[in-house]
Write a protein that binds this DNA or RNA. Structure first.
Lengths: 182, 182
DNA sequence: CAAGATATGTCAACATGACTGACATAAATT
DNA sequence: AATTTATGTCAGTCATGTTGACATATCTTG
């Protein structure tokens, strides 16, 4: 076994640390910061393992997820949501199209647009991954009462930037977004 | 403006979708899944912007964070926590050492070990980034009562895998970990 | 003590998923 | 007819992850 001998807190030994120059070393939410790190790591880990079997990565998952959830999403919308460049999106989207997980449909009003839809094959993949993640979430919520669950939802919503919301965020928050605080 | 015309839910148009082959399309926690995605994206985004000014990336942040928080962490511990290979860690660690954000100290009991400590320069960087993230967390928790805050902590803890916990997780959960469920 | 295991570091090659910049096409708008 | 917009694509680069091989110092064990 490796020894469990490290103590907690900033107690550097000889790191020239007698000057203590750091600002606000109390009142920081180290607890939540680290819990978010580990929780998210394991949360996405569920899907990562499954994706390997398909030869896909996280990028493919994100695309599939939002295309399935918001059918008819335009390429431009997807770029807003994922916050990546069209070159980056292009690669994974091309694979998903070629392998039949997503189909494109020319827009009715604007024939330049390519509206995206998940195929049954794509739906099955998304559902499988969401199932794994839902299992984890359900387990985590099991011993929490409805008020607690509501607080969790409120917290997560409040962690999200709402200036310049993309289409998906507008859907989540109910179009009349753009209300930061106060 | 781009039109806000996409409807919700899996209502594919002609994606050969009359067969509906997907398993369990109800009862999935799409809400929490998406909230976690956006919340984490914006949460790490705070630090990302600041890191650019230092010429660092997320990898550097993670290393700095855990070295500061758990002084005397060994290289092997860090590998466990971050779940990356020593070659990956080696690159960012070397930069942080060379630029004076971290120092190494030979282990007392075992002189093969290199115990890691943040320098004052490193502490300042970590504190700055944690400050940004704490601001977001504090804002998000502002209108939530103590019971709600407790529920949030409980939820995040329960989202984390506890089989084979690393040193940091043992510290967070209080060594007697290894209790999965029931 | 000699042999083997362990902790760390490093070289080289490669994959993924980001990025920038440039350019092409089709369709809508002016 | 000219311009703008939505999309696609080529080419190169960067950050960060991976494997595999190997070197060195130090600890542990027979």
């Amino acid at each position: 076994m490796t020894d469990i001998n490290f103590s907690r807190g900033p107690t550097s030994p000889d790191s020239q640390g007698a000057t203590s120059p750091a600002p606000r070393l109390g009142e920081l939410r180290w607890d939540i910061i680290e819990l978010l790190f580990f929780a998210y790591r394991d949360f996405v880990g569920d899907a990562d393992h499954e994706l390997e079997a398909f030869g896909f990565g996280r990028a493919h998952h994100r695309v599939m997820h939002f295309v399935y959830r918001y059918p008819g999403l335009k390429v431009a919308d997807l770029l807003d949501v994922l916050r990546i460049t069209k070159q980056s999106l292009g690669r994974v989207l091309k694979q998903l199209l070629d392998e039949g997980y997503i189909i494109q449909k020319t827009g009715n009003n604007d024939r330049r647009q390519r509206l995206l839809y998940a195929t049954p094959k794509g739906e099955a993949l998304v559902a499988k991954l969401a199932g794994l993640q839902t299992d984890r979430i359900t387990r985590a919520l099991r011993d929490i009462n409805p008020e607690g669950v509501a607080a969790i939802g409120q917290f997560l919503r409040a962690m999200i930037d709402r200036d310049d919301p993309d289409k998906v965020l507008e859907a989540i928050f109910g179009t009349g977004s753009k209300k930061p605080r106060e």
